[in-house]
């Protein structure tokens, strides 16, 4: 029995190179297989008449649609409008949300005064305000950027407040007893120690800003990916709709990954 157990251990320790390679990349291989499977099933269901490709699209019909939109420059135009609006809304949210969050986390008075408004606006479906924004700012980029900004700023703010308030008291006391001033404590202790939670806020903010941009474009714009989905959807051009939806999905993935990359860079010191 001892020999048997040893044999098993040896076999486990030296799997063939191919198996080892597969084991290492199993998540990637299976993940790619999942995506391919989805597209194959979609194509087959359309070809076999399980679903009507005129209503539910078909991967093979997307390629010519995408090529047509690209050739006409329509695709690039809408993508660049959406990206610009996202960048503006998100940047504004960062510039307002993080400093305000630090203020609210640092000064109890500021926190108490602003708290009711922040929580109310955080939990409200701010998209509902878009008719007001159109009244105030008119149709187009300002309205879309405002919606994206408002959706993104509150999770950022709330996470920053939480981050500052949950810095370990012992760290602050230690810095204080070595004679650090408020500004030094802020820059050397509170700021770096609250970064992980601030980044959690940034991740949420990316997603919500994108929702704001796309939904804002659906209702209050004449350009951008959200507008394009509505426009082609209204004309029953399903392949074009899927092309733009794919762009939106890819944008979501790329932006989320970018923020994760940045997080990994800036928080390397913290790796357990």
């Amino acid at each position: 029995m001892a020999a048997g157990a040893g044999a098993v251990a040896v076999r486990r320790a030296r799997p063939s190179a191919a198996v080892r390679l597969y084991a290492r990349y199993e998540p990637v291989v299976l993940g790619a297989a999942g995506v391919v499977l989805l597209f194959v099933l979609w194509e087959a269901a359309g070809a076999l008449g399980v679903i009507d490709p005129r209503l539910f699209g078909q991967p093979s019909r997307l390629v010519p649609a995408a090529a047509g939109l690209w050739g006409a420059g329509v695709l690039q135009h809408h993508v660049s409008v959406t990206l610009t609006e996202f960048a503006l809304g998100f940047t504004l949210a960062v510039l307002v949300g993080i400093p305000m969050g630090f203020l609210m986390g640092w000064y109890r008075g500021v926190e108490y005064v602003l708290e009711p408004f922040v929580w109310f606006l955080y939990s409200s479906p701010l998209v509902a305000f878009y008719p007001l924004f159109i009244v105030w700012f008119g149709i187009g980029m300002p309205t879309v950027v405002t919606i994206a900004f408002l959706l993104a700023v509150f999770p950022l703010l709330i996470n920053t407040v939480t981050g500052v308030q949950h810095v370990e008291a012992a760290l602050v006391r230690a810095a204080r007893s070595f004679g650090a001033r408020d500004l030094e404590i802020f820059l050397k202790v509170s700021l770096p120690a609250s970064l992980p939670i601030v980044f959690a806020g940034l991740r949420l903010a990316v997603g919500r800003a994108l929702v704001g941009v796309v939904v804002g474009e659906i209702f209050g714009a004449t350009a951008g990916l959200g507008f394009a989905v509505r426009y082609w959807g209204g004309r029953l051009r399903i392949p074009e709709v899927f092309v733009f939806l794919t762009c939106i999905a890819l944008l979501g993935v790329v932006l989320t990954q970018l923020i994760r990359l940045l997080e990994g860079r800036l928080l390397r010191w913290r790796h357990e």
């Binding site: 199993e26 993940g31 539910f56 959807g233 939106i248 999905a249 979501g252």
Partner: peptide, 29 residues
């Protein structure tokens, strides 16, 4: 675990995208 690997990228893509954008399609369906 393997089922998880298989569905992960598809789920994450849908998770990251603003799904309200599918509204025009859903109305058609």
């Amino acid at each position: 675990r393997r089922l998880g690997y298989l569905v992960d990228p598809v789920l994450m893509t849908f998770y990251a995208m603003p799904r309200d954008a599918m509204l025009p399609l859903i109305i058609i369906w």
